[in-house]
Design a protein around this nucleic acid. Structure first.
Lengths: 135, 135
DNA sequence: GTGTTAATTGTTATAATATAACATTGTGTA
DNA sequence: TACACAATGTTATATTATAACAATTAACAC
């Protein structure tokens, strides 16, 4: 087999960034990551963004587009970030990943009227979480 | 009835920005809007962003979150930006608004397992449009 | 009309998010 | 070894968005 350069393991910076995102366990912004991994030797935004790009690509993390934030994937079966759904509380900004088989099945098989073939989707629900709706 | 300050018509800047977005008829970025409405007297980013905020709020335009771009609402019934779905071509970046009754019904009634009450959602599908999948 | 409130505008400065460009180093494998 | 590619390090800059504050305008109550 020629040129099988597909990497199995994460690189140093990728691992540092992933470790931190998994530790905080909530959506976090790129520059906040940067500030928190500087002691590990990561000095520049680009180092963080490159790691983020890779981690998103391989499905270890997801980007919450409406918040420009990144969160670790909870869904162990999620190998690629190609079918993501989140609920977002507009009050406390709590975000959780939705893993609902029926929903993902429905969306994966959704057919556009224009005949477009979809490879990926991202769905974000907004509202008030239980705690915030009591207040 | 006291203090019914709900405005019926758009303000000057809001109308200028909306007119331009409707004219171009495709997703457009805030600073591109700014460059193109400067002849109309809008000078600063904030003037654009304020108009955009309002137009999104009242459902005249939508934000394509994954692209940081804004597009006029095609769906005449769309009074509020609370249920939006788009298809996005990853090659040519063509975006179209999906209006599919079954889909919106399904998503509006979707119930989170955590019991969160949703007020809004945004769904973005990614893939290749017809033209680009031929190439 | 006056007074009141909220929406909108204008303006300058700055914050927050993200990428370009280029040189260098590391890693797997033929 | 040599090759191809992935990852890193670094500086600078581009892009997206908001803070803060003063002034003006619009809608309505009285």
């Amino acid at each position: 087999m020629k040129h099988m350069h597909k990497q199995e393991n994460l690189s140093k910076n990728q691992q540092i960034v992933l470790d931190y995102i998994e530790k905080v366990n909530e959506p976090i912004k790129a520059y906040s990551i940067l500030h928190n991994v500087q002691k590990k030797g990561i000095k520049a935004p680009l180092q963080v963004y490159r790691a983020l790009d890779k981690l998103v690509e391989i499905g270890k993390i997801h980007k919450i587009e409406s918040r420009n934030a990144f969160v670790a994937c909870k869904n162990s079966s999620c190998q690629l970030s190609k079918a993501t759904a989140f609920s977002i509380c507009e009050s406390c900004e709590e975000v959780s990943e939705i893993s609902d088989n029926k929903l993902s099945k429905y969306l994966k098989s959704f057919q556009d009227k224009a005949g477009m073939k979809f490879k990926k989707y991202n769905l974000e629900f907004f509202g008030l979480c239980k705690k915030c709706s009591i207040k």
